[in-house]
Amino acid sequence: MNCPCCSGKSYEECCKPFHTKTKFPQTAEELMRSRFSAFAIPNGEYLMDTTFPAKRKLHNKKDLQEWGEMNDWTKLEIIKTSGKNLVEFKAHYNDENGTTQIHHEISLFEKLNNRWYYVSGKFLD
């Protein structure tokens, strides 16, 4: 199976090792890609685990899981990375009504104890 993150690699050699915690993302972009795949699969537990610990109270594993389940995640476009911790991306998906949507965001990531975490995102039009 091709990896949902659109890396061109198989899921087994791309995001699966991150989802199973046998490897950890080494860059903010790798974490971004693995989180997109976690929405596509879906894997709400991984999404919570990779949210910055101080920000987890703002999120809910059940909601993250449902957001993944209710949408058909079709494509990830990495627009650019800035510095080591900003990733601009477009996540393409079909919502529960079958309407094509694009989620355009600049995400902030932070490294803590040698692991990358999602901190926050700024939505773009």
Rank of each mutant, 00 (worst) to 15 (best):
M1N: 05
C3I: 09
C3Q: 10
C3Y: 01
C6K: 13
S7E: 10
G8W: 06
G8N: 07
K9C: 01
K9S: 09
S10N: 13
S10D: 13
Y11V: 07
Y11Q: 10
K16Y: 12
K16H: 10
P17F: 07
K21E: 15
K21V: 09
T22C: 05
T22N: 10
K23F: 04
F24K: 13
F24V: 12
E29M: 11
E30W: 04
E30R: 02
E30L: 10
E30F: 03
R33G: 01
F36V: 00
A38Y: 07
A38V: 00
A38T: 00
I41Q: 14
I41D: 07
Y46E: 09
Y46F: 15
L47K: 01
L47Q: 02
L47N: 00
T50N: 11
T51W: 12
F52M: 12
F52S: 02
P53E: 11
A54K: 14
H59F: 15
K61H: 01
K61P: 01
K61T: 09
K62E: 14
D63H: 12
D63G: 05
L64D: 02
L64V: 00
E66W: 06
W67T: 03
G68N: 03
E69W: 04
E69T: 02
N71F: 04
N71P: 02
D72E: 14
D72Y: 03
D72P: 05
K75Y: 14
E77L: 06
E77R: 07
I79M: 07
I79E: 06
K80A: 12
T81Y: 00
T81P: 00
S82E: 15
G83S: 08
K84Q: 15
K84I: 13
N85I: 03
N85R: 10
L86H: 05
V87I: 12
V87M: 11
E88A: 14
E88Y: 04
E88M: 09
F89Q: 02
K90M: 08
K90C: 08
H92R: 05
Y93F: 15
N94Q: 10
D95N: 13
D95I: 04
E96V: 09
N97C: 05
N97W: 06
G98C: 10
G98L: 09
T100K: 13
I102E: 14
H104N: 14
E105T: 12
E105W: 03
E105S: 11
I106V: 13
I106K: 12
S107F: 03
F109R: 11
E110Q: 15
K111P: 00
K111T: 08
L112K: 13
N113T: 01
N113Y: 07
Y117K: 01
Y117M: 03
Y118C: 09
S120L: 06
S120H: 03
G121Y: 06
K122E: 15
F123W: 10
D125G: 11
D125F: 06
